[in-house]
Design a protein around this nucleic acid. Structure first.
Length: 678
DNA sequence: TCTCTCACTTC
DNA sequence: TGAAGTGAGAG
């Protein structure tokens, strides 16, 4: 015990210390105690800390400060009930190294950067009596970690140079300044004092919990740590695979889009008539008109990519049967390579590397977190979807019943724009670059092709039903076979750092020589995958606050009708993102993306409107009973001004003129139009 | 590697 | 209801 305390002060690596929850305090001065106390401190949620620790705990630090997770909580005993104590914690450098996360493990990357100003956090209940402290769990969850050196919080106390715990100036505040990519060790202190100003001259009892050691990062490096945090931090619930969080919605959106694709596939094979296809488009668009369509982006692609999902599932399956499966009580969604203990042979190394899920390149290559579930987890955690759907989002033959199921989803979780776009593009894809439809090149190339998983390169279509013969590539997101017996939970805690090879996962391996080019990847080969290298958010973000960036990618996407910004009134808003892909609230569409709707004759008007009319999106809009009258009017206009009518121009002159008048009137009197809308 | 915004969550 | 806390994703 004494050795342990001494280690804290003498720089002996904590890693050399065994698990320790109760440490004899380090006394700096003879206490003025009326009643002897023998404080003992127990770390709360130790199991959780252990789970993190054996993967290499990371704590995110931000400019504004981030809390620690797991939160640092202790339970005290052995205090003098009547005496007053100040409880505080600080975070010290665990060593003098800088680290990097390389090949899914932390490695020393050099000497530590200059130390940040020393900070400590006094528990806000301090001072309090021993009885009070012992009656509850003492939590330091409000302590924040920051890398903002200019952060000004709290006050400073000067500690004497002979103080055994602290020397020099320490500032007290809610934020602790840390260096990114450095390893730290929290410390807990009990000081018997009734005034904070007496701290420099009081006895400190210092407690260390090696399992709370962590590396400060500005962005998570290890996917397993990320997943652990998501699985355990209530604030991250929205990212969990289960439940109705964003991930779930994305998954549902993907599934829905795949069903529509199946519909289209049937149609193209003559097994489905056009009306059914349009019906599919309508169904989806009708959902689009519901509020709050989730952001849709890369995840859809990821989810659509069976090479990812399958390999992941397979890998997870292997892993679940591996040694660490026993560790999966609460963290079943996490993955670990720790079972792979034989890291020495090149072959094993290759496997280990193959196990990595690229993090940064993962925008394309990395499997979606959605697909991290092991099959077991899938079946146990699925709430909104069946396990089968999760496993094979792109499987053949998505039955209409499934479409119905998707349709029955709450509007908020439904996903229509995707489908609308898909239909629009897929319908014309075979015709080449959308001939004669009046789509701007950018529209065809970006909106209806670039951003939608359904507009994959033909080779990508196969992703919905991967070849049975396909095997995860050696470099791909598969997991290595189990190479060793199960880990004892603590016996294998890697100490000292860096973690043993294979412990932890999967960071970005961008540029790693072992990585074959993406073109070598089944299901993503060929130009088809290229558009998704830079995913474009889908434009129908109906109620998002992100009129800006989310829709930014849509700026290139389409030819919005020339509705004035003031026309973005409520009911039409559901339509606006489609018609004004880049036009969020208060956002001005670039001039070159604002075609004149009321051009003369069959020119701009006919071309653009006809494009809308010919687009299934327009059909869907037109069919959408949820849209307001103005939207319907516009859509109806679009439909009536199809290229076919343009060819019979004279016959349709009167109608065209009336529509032109209508449009002109709308532009001239936007307010009236708005007031007329429900 | 870092910063910022976003959608989502808890409290 | 809104402040605050979360990881994802983009840049």
């Amino acid at each position: 015990m004494d050795q342990l305390v001494g280690a804290a002060e003498t720089g002996i690596p904590f890693s050399s210390l065994g698990p320790q929850a109760h440490l004899r305090p380090l006394k700096t001065m003879e206490p003025e105690e009326e009643v002897e106390d023998d404080p003992k401190v127990h770390l709360e949620a130790k199991e959780l800390w252990d789970q993190f620790h054996k993967r290499g705990t990371e704590m995110v630090i931000t400019k504004s400060g981030r809390r620690m997770f797991p939160p640092f909580k202790v339970r005290c005993s052995g205090l003098d009930k009547k005496a007053k104590y100040i409880l505080l914690m600080d975070i010290i450098a665990a060593d003098d190294c800088r680290y990097k996360f390389h090949n899914s493990r932390w490695m020393v990357a050099g000497k530590a950067d200059p130390e940040m100003p020393k900070r400590m956090y006094i528990h806000p209940d301090s001072p309090a009596t021993g009885e009070q402290w012992m009656s509850k769990v003492v939590t330091f969850h409000k302590l924040k970690l920051t890398n903002n050196i200019s952060d000004k919080h709290g006050f400073t106390l000067a500690f004497p140079s002979d103080h055994a715990t602290w020397q020099g100036n320490y500032s007290f505040g809610t934020q602790t300044i840390l260096n990114s990519m450095h390893k730290y060790q929290p410390r807990f202190h009990i000081v018997r004092a009734n005034d904070i100003l007496k701290l420099p001259y009081s006895t400190f009892r210092t407690y260390l919990f090696p399992e709370t050691e962590f590396i400060a990062v500005t962005a998570y490096q290890n996917d397993k740590i990320t997943q652990l945090k998501i699985d355990n931090n209530p604030f991250a619930k929205g990212f969990r695979d289960t439940g109705n969080g964003r991930r779930e919605k994305r998954k549902q959106l993907t599934l829905q889009s795949m069903r529509v694709f199946d519909e289209r596939h049937k149609k193209e094979n003559g097994t489905s008539d056009e009306s059914s296809s349009e019906q599919a488009a309508f169904n989806c668009f009708a959902q689009a008109s519901s509020p709050a369509v989730s952001t849709v982006g890369t995840s859809n692609l990821k989810d659509l990519c069976p090479s990812e999902g399958e390999s992941d599932a397979e890998a997870e399956s292997k892993e679940e049967h591996g040694p660490e499966a026993c560790d999966a009580a609460k963290i079943s969604t996490t993955t670990s390579e720790e079972p792979c203990r034989d890291k020495g042979s090149p072959a094993v190394k290759a496997h280990l590397f193959a196990a990595e899920r690229p993090r940064d390149s993962g925008r394309l290559d990395k499997a979606s977190p959605d697909s991290r579930h092991s099959p077991a987890t899938i079946s146990s955690s699925t709430r909104g979807l069946g396990a089968e759907e999760r496993r094979s989002p792109g499987r053949e033959g998505a039955a209409p019943a499934k479409v119905e199921e998707a349709r029955a989803l709450p509007g908020k979780e439904a996903f229509a724009p995707l489908t609308v776009q898909s239909d629009a593009a897929a319908a014309h894809l075979a015709q080449g670059p959308l001939p004669g439809l009046g789509f701007a090149p950018g529209l065809a190339g970006q909106q209806f092709f670039n951003g939608h998983p359904l507009f994959l390169h033909p080779s990508q279509f196969a992703m919905g039903a991967p070849s049975p013969a396909w095997q995860p590539p050696a470099w791909g997101p598969s997991w290595p076979p189990c190479l060793g017996p199960p880990l004892a939970s603590r016996a294998w805690i890697p100490r000292p750092w860096p973690l043993p090879r294979g412990a932890g996962t999967v960071r970005g391996v961008r540029g790693h020589p072992a990585l074959p080019p993406p073109a070598a990847r089944p299901g993503l080969s060929g130009p088809g995958h290229v558009p998704f290298r830079k995913p474009v958010p889908l434009p129908l973000h109906v109620h998002g606050r992100s009129g800006g960036r989310l829709l930014c990618g849509s700026l290139q996407l389409g030819a919005p009708p020339p509705l004035p910004q003031s026309e973005h009134h409520a009911p039409t808003a559901a339509l606006q993102p489609l018609l004004h892909p880049g036009a969020g609230p208060g956002r001005q569409q670039p001039a070159h993306h604002r075609p004149a709707l009321h051009g003369g004759g069959c020119g701009a008007l006919d071309g653009k409107v006809a494009a809308l009319a010919a687009s299934p999106a327009s059909v869907a809009v037109d069919s959408g009973s949820e849209l307001n009258s103005r939207s319907s009017t516009l859509s109806s206009s679009s439909v009536s001004l199809s290229p076919k009518l343009c060819a019979e121009k004279e016959a349709a002159t009167s109608e065209l003129q009336s529509i032109q008048r209508l449009v002109s009137g709308l532009e001239a009197k936007p307010d009236r139009s708005r007031s007329a809308s429900p």
